[in-house]
Simulated assay, not measured.
Amino acid sequence: MKLSPAASWFLLAFGVWSWFIWVSFVRNLWKNGSGLAFDAAGDPTSYFWVHLTLAVTSFLLGTAVGVIGLRGVRAVRRASRTEPDTGAGSAA
């Protein structure tokens, strides 16, 4: 399967976005002082475990999508280097 350059870049950007968003989310979840993520004794609540599971799953899926995008971008670049430059259509 071949991805277009635009689709490859979109998938790569989505993967980077996932790293940024979900790492930030888990960091904020860990620091949560509202009583939702941790009870009075400091133990994680079910809210914490559910949201940590959602974040890790989304992080892993975003990573997989980003890897697909990266492979597509690399393939596009590799293909553009191996194509002979005929000079057709280029204005000096």
Rank of each mutant, 00 (worst) to 15 (best):
V16C: 14
L11D: 08
K2H: 07
V23R: 04
W19I: 05
L60R: 06
S18A: 15
L52N: 01
T45H: 11
G66R: 05
W22H: 09
V16A: 15
V23D: 09
G33M: 13
L60N: 10
G62E: 08
L60F: 12
R27I: 12
L70G: 06
R74E: 14
R74Y: 13
Y47T: 03
T63Y: 08
S80L: 12
A91K: 11
S18F: 08
P44L: 09
L12N: 05
G42Y: 02
D43W: 00
L36D: 14
G62I: 00
L61Q: 08
G69V: 05
D85R: 10
A13M: 07
A40L: 11
W17Q: 14
G42I: 08
G87Y: 01
K31P: 04
D43A: 13
M1S: 13
M1W: 13
S34T: 15
G87Q: 00
R78G: 12
T86K: 12
Y47L: 02
S58C: 00
R77H: 14
Y47I: 07
V65H: 05
L70Y: 09
S58T: 07
N28R: 15
A41C: 00
G66T: 06
A7K: 10
R78Y: 12
G69T: 04
P84D: 05
D39Q: 06
A40I: 07
L12E: 09
R27N: 10
T45S: 14
